[in-house]
Simulated assay, not measured.
Amino acid sequence: MLTDWINETNLNMVTHVEGWQQAVAIAVQPMVEAGAVEPRYLQAIYDMHREIGPYYVLGEGIAMPHARPEEGVIKTALSLLIISEGVSFDSPDNDPVYVVFALAAVDSHSHIEMIASLSQLFCEEETVGKLRSARTKQDVLAILSQF
Score class of each variant (00 low, 15 high):
102 A>F: 10
63 A>Q: 02
123 C>F: 02
107 D>E: 14
110 S>V: 04
60 E>L: 14
54 P>T: 14
25 A>R: 09
49 H>S: 09
40 R>A: 15
13 M>P: 05
91 S>Y: 08
96 P>Y: 12
59 G>N: 07
108 S>R: 07
107 D>R: 01
141 L>E: 04
106 V>F: 02
28 V>I: 15
128 V>L: 12
8 E>H: 08
18 E>Q: 15
42 L>D: 01
22 Q>Y: 11
66 H>D: 15
120 Q>K: 14
38 E>H: 01
92 P>S: 12
3 T>R: 03
82 I>P: 00
111 H>A: 07
13 M>A: 03
47 D>R: 12
5 W>P: 03
103 L>E: 01
81 L>W: 04
104 A>S: 04
133 S>V: 07
28 V>G: 02
106 V>T: 15
72 G>L: 07
53 G>C: 13
89 F>I: 12
15 T>F: 01
110 S>R: 09
59 G>R: 14
39 P>Y: 11
96 P>V: 06
21 Q>R: 12
99 V>C: 03
25 A>E: 14
135 R>L: 10
96 P>K: 03
97 V>S: 10
2 L>A: 05
74 I>Q: 13
139 D>Y: 03
146 Q>T: 10
22 Q>K: 10
7 N>R: 01
63 A>I: 12
80 L>Y: 03
2 L>N: 09
75 K>W: 03
52 I>G: 09
79 S>L: 13
21 Q>Y: 09
93 D>V: 08
93 D>F: 01
58 L>Y: 06
135 R>D: 04
146 Q>V: 04
55 Y>G: 02
113 E>F: 08
124 E>M: 06
146 Q>S: 12
108 S>I: 12
104 A>W: 06
135 R>E: 10
11 L>A: 00
105 A>H: 01
9 T>R: 12
61 G>H: 01
6 I>E: 00
111 H>W: 09
35 G>S: 00
97 V>C: 05
98 Y>C: 03
65 P>S: 14
128 V>S: 07
5 W>R: 01
18 E>P: 04
145 S>Y: 05
7 N>K: 06
83 I>N: 02
16 H>G: 02
26 I>K: 04
85 E>P: 00
10 N>T: 02
110 S>P: 07
135 R>S: 04
68 R>S: 07
34 A>G: 02
105 A>I: 09
20 W>R: 13
37 V>F: 01
113 E>H: 15
53 G>H: 08
110 S>F: 00
100 V>I: 15
65 P>V: 15
4 D>W: 04
115 I>P: 05
23 A>C: 07
90 D>M: 08
99 V>W: 03
17 V>Y: 07
125 E>T: 14
23 A>G: 04
116 A>P: 00
27 A>G: 06
30 P>K: 04
71 E>D: 15
24 V>H: 10
12 N>W: 02
77 A>P: 02
14 V>R: 07
131 L>F: 08
70 E>C: 08
65 P>H: 05
66 H>A: 14
30 P>T: 00
144 L>K: 03
138 Q>D: 13
90 D>V: 03
78 L>N: 07
141 L>M: 04
57 V>I: 13
75 K>E: 14
2 L>P: 08
101 F>I: 11
122 F>W: 12
5 W>V: 00
23 A>M: 09
